[in-house]
Amino acid sequence: MAEMTKKAQAFQDYLDEKNIKAFVSEIIENDPEETTVFRSHVEVDGQQLPLLVLLDRSIFSMIRVQVSPKCKTEENELAVLKLANELNLKYKPFKLYFDGEGSLILDICLLTPDEETKEIGDMIYGMFNVLIQFLNENYRGIMKTIW
């Protein structure tokens, strides 16, 4: 059985210390990057959006939210991509894009070198606050463009 990287273990320790039970963790077996996925959700406008925290042995960590599953159509693709591009230019930490299944995804990439593992929980939770504010301000407009 694979073990968590230092970063992933530090985040798990943070969750345990703060008694945060909103995440389920999974170590990806036989992954060369030794990725641990922490699964949860974020609630926006009454919708529970799937949220992942992806931690591995690289200096990068990802927070990923599925804004809308399999929503890309021929009719909305251009308008959604234009809106995503506008938001990507305006909000530095976020990148919106369609994945291979046509779902609208929001990624946040953080630099998290192993030497700073003690702060990883605070860093990730700090970005959750920014993420939730962004979604609360923009979710309806994004969904209006999708529909």
Rank of each mutant, 00 (worst) to 15 (best):
Val67Ser: 05
Leu83Glu: 04
Lys95Gly: 14
Leu49Val: 06
Phe94Leu: 08
Ser61Met: 05
Leu51Gly: 00
Val53Asp: 00
Leu96Thr: 01
Ala79Gly: 09
Glu86Trp: 11
Pro69Tyr: 11
Asn76Gln: 05
Asn88Val: 08
Pro50Ser: 08
Ala79Cys: 01
Glu74Ile: 12
Lys95Met: 09
Asp45Met: 10
Asn85Trp: 03
Ser68Trp: 07
Leu78Glu: 11
Phe94Lys: 01
Asp45Phe: 09
Val65Arg: 01
Pro93Arg: 12
Phe60Asp: 09
Lys82Phe: 10
Met62Asn: 07
Ile63Asn: 03
Glu75Gly: 10
Glu74Gln: 10
Asp45Gly: 13
Leu83Trp: 03
Tyr97Leu: 11
Gly100Thr: 13
Leu81Cys: 13
Asn76Glu: 07
Leu96Ile: 04
Lys95Phe: 12
Leu83Gly: 10
Leu83Gln: 08
Lys90Trp: 03
Ile63His: 02
Glu77Gln: 13
Asp99Glu: 08
Leu78Gly: 10
Arg57Gln: 13
Leu54Phe: 02
Leu83Cys: 07
Arg64Lys: 15
Gly100His: 06
Met62Leu: 13
Pro93Ala: 03
Leu55Ile: 10
Glu77Asp: 13
Lys72Tyr: 04
Leu51Tyr: 06
Gly46Ile: 10
Leu96Lys: 03
Arg57Lys: 15
Lys90Gln: 15
Pro69Ala: 13
Arg64Val: 12
Gln47Trp: 00
Lys82Gln: 13
Leu52Val: 07
Pro69Val: 01
Phe98Lys: 12
Cys71Lys: 02
Lys70Thr: 11
Ile59Ala: 11
Phe60Pro: 07
Leu78Phe: 10
Gly100Pro: 00
Leu52Tyr: 09
Gln66Cys: 11
Glu74Cys: 06
Leu78His: 15
Asn88Phe: 01
Phe94Ile: 04
Lys72Val: 11
Gly46Arg: 08
Pro69Gly: 05
Leu55Asp: 01
Gln66Pro: 02
Glu75Phe: 11
Pro69Gln: 10
